[in-house]
Every structure is written in structure tokens, then in C-alpha cells.
Design a protein around this nucleic acid. Structure first.
Lengths: 201, 201
DNA sequence: GTCTATATAGAGATAGAC
DNA sequence: GTCTATCTCTATATAGAC
């Protein structure tokens, strides 16, 4: 059986994705979703058991999309530094923030293991993927052998997530870019960092 | 005229601070504040014009407290690296997140220049304070001369803010600590980082 | 499947007694 | 200054018509 155009269930999920990104879970009402989707009350409760169920479908899709977007940069045939750099410098609307990461500040999402799971899994996947790449770069001599891949990976993800916080606080993407450049400068393959720690004078 | 114990206005502000930290602005209702403060409806609207006004008082106080806490580590008589390290390694409840930074994910806070102002000013102050310290460390030879202080400062703040995101996503403070260690490893005064970027396998 | 009532609770604020 | 009504609007969900 065919569905002409986009069906209601689909529109509900997409509307929820947009509103969750913009206003979070607590700040998004079923009524707002229905308005955005152009659907009536009954449709939502026909396709989903309620707000949490619909939100879960929306979050899962957003999480999958985020992994695919990241992999597009991280999976390129290039050096580790170039792939990490491509991921960090990718065009972003920093003021919108991360549609997955922002959910960690939502009390109702964090209180529900089911809603939190896709958020956790996605950020965890990203960390592990970056860890592989850092390890690879270390073996190839791009990075210092003293780098700990798992910690470096956590740093990279944190820089992005925290960059969104700075951008939104200042209403400007500049701070996001600054943090990313600061990280890339420290990660950049370098000959010698300068004089040893001569703290005197 | 004396006020015995803590007055109602004070209790309202403290209750609001706790709830804003825990549930954000959108997720905090006046009713919840009154319950937490042990006050009636009338008290709140006597001392404040409404929810935004009370939230503003709470946010300002939290912001001031955050600056003081950071300065306690950053203002120590020590090397730049030690002060930054002390700030990053300070004991934190990473799962609670940053009471100031979390507000950047609150749509109603971001939509209001008045509510956003103390958030912006605080994170901006922190970045500038760290910038001074990085610059100082660079002049003293602790850090590479190629480091750009403003970008490094943005990175440090982003690492902390993003670390909270990772910790909350995974319900564990471990990821926060990992990111911080990853950053400190890259910042650590070092003699030579290893071989130059020989990317060929 | 989708719609329009309808129901119950809570958000946010006001009025006026004490 | 603080309290308890009270008010209007919205959140979330259900019922039942079409």
C-alpha cells in the first residue's frame, strides 16, 4: 500500500525533532508539535502512546543522523589529523547547538533511561570512533606517543559540545570557532613545542 | 531592623537557584519554587514581579558565586599551568553540570537578553581570565610561543562545559575527567613532542 | 486514521483578606 | 509581608464521532 507524500506519523516525528532541538523536551508541548506538524490531537495518540514515545522516535532518528554526519568526515581516506580537523571545522550553525548533546541538560530526558539511551550511545560511539582515529594517528607518528587516545577523544567531543555552550551564551559562533582552533593548534603535528618548562622569570 | 534567621526573599532566591540548576528555567515552575522555599503565592509576587525577575536574581547570584569559585583556583600564586590545572581538577559534581552553562540550553533564557546577560558575562569573564593566565604562561616559557591565548582559553572553558555534557549523557563523571586529562596532557610543558608529521604509513 | 470535544492537572499571575 | 482564593491559559491525555 502506497502513502502519497509524507504521512502524518512522519510529519509528527520531524516536527518533534525540530522542536526538541529548539526548545528541548521539557519545553516542547504536544500542542506545539501538532501545530508544527499540521495534525490533530487524535493523530498523535493513534501513532504514539504519548509524548515520551514520540520523543523517543525523534531522538533516535536525530541520533542516527548525527552519527552519519560525523562519519562522513571521520571516515574519509586521509590522515588522522585531517579527518579530525574536517570534523571539527565542518560547517555548523553553532548557535543552534547539538540536537543530541543539548538533551543532556533536559531533566526529564536524564531521568528516563529510555530517552537518555540514544543520547548516551551516540556520544559514546563518537568518542570511540575518535579514539580509533587518534590511536591510528599516534601509530603513524602524527601525534605524540604520549597521547592517550581515549582521553584525547573525550577532549575532542567535549570541545565541540562546550563550544556550543560558549556560542549560545554570547549569541555568536565566534567562541565555538576559537575553541576548535585552540584544540587543533594543540593537536597539530609539530616538531618541537619550544623550551622546556622554565617557569622562572 | 533585624531579620531573624533567613527571610522569605532570601529563601525564594535560594530555592530558585537550586531548581534552576536541577531543572533549568523552562522546567521550573513558580509553584515548585514556593514549595521548596516554604512560602505562599503572595510572598513571591510581593518581592518579585514574577518568575523572570526572581530567576534573574537567582542567576546573578549563581554567576557571582561561580566567578568567585573559579578565581579561588585561578588567582593562586603559582605557575600558569598549575593554576589552570587546579581549576580543571577541582572537585566537582560533574553529573550536576554547570549551573551557569546549562542555562544556555534553555530557550527562554536565550530568548531574553536580560536573563542571558549574566550567563554571557560570566563565561566571558572566565575566558578572559584564562586568556591572561595563558599569556602569562607563554611569556614565562611554560607554553609554546605558538599558542594563541584567546583560543586556548576558549578551549579550556569549552572542555569543562562539554565535559559536563559527556558526564550527564553517560551518567558517570568519568568522561568529564577523561576530557580534562586529555587537555592537561596537551597543555603540559614538554620538551619535544616527537617526530615531525610523517604521515606516510 | 483523523478529527473535534472533553477532562484533569498545573503554570503563571492577580485580588483581597489578615 | 504573608496568606488563601481565584482566574485564565496551557499541558497532557482520553472519548468517541466520522
Amino acid at each position: 500500500m502506497y502513502t502519497q507524500g509524507v504521512n502524518t506519523s512522519e510529519r509528527l516525528i520531524e516536527a518533534t525533532r525540530e522542536l526538541l532541538w529548539e526548545r528541548g523536551y521539557v519545553g516542547t508541548s504536544p500542542k506545539a508539535i501538532l501545530r508544527q506538524a499540521g495534525a490533530g490531537q487524535g493523530s498523535m495518540y493513534h501513532h504514539f502512546t504519548g509524548k515520551p514515545d514520540l520523543a523517543l522516535a525523534a531522538i533516535r532518528r536525530t541520533a542516527a543522523e548525527m552519527r552519519a554526519t560525523a562519519e562522513a568526515d571521520l571516515g574519509r581516506p586521509d590522515t588522522a589529523y585531517e579527518r579530525i580537523s574536517a570534523y571539527l571545522l565542518r560547517e555548523r550553525d553553532a548557535l543552534r547547538g547539538c540536537p543530541v548533546g543539548r538533551l543532556t541538560m533536559d531533566p526529564d530526558v536524564i531521568a528516563s533511561d529510555e530517552l537518555r539511551a540514544p543520547v548516551d550511545e551516540t556520544l559514546d560511539w563518537l568518542r570511540e570512533r575518535l579514539e580509533e582515529i587518534v590511536e591510528e594517528g599516534r601509530e603513524r607518528g602524527e601525534f605524540s606517543a604520549s597521547l592517550i587516545p581515549s582521553e584525547t577523544a573525550a577532549l575532542i567531543v567535549a570541545t565541540v559540545q562546550g563550544g556550543y555552550v560558549l556560542a549560545r551564551a554570547s549569541s555568536s559562533p565566534a567562541a565555538f570557532d576559537a575553541g576548535v582552533r585552540g584544540l587543533l593548534a594543540l593537536l597539530a603535528p609539530q616538531e618541537c613545542a619550544g623550551p622546556a618548562g622554565s617557569a622562572a622569570g
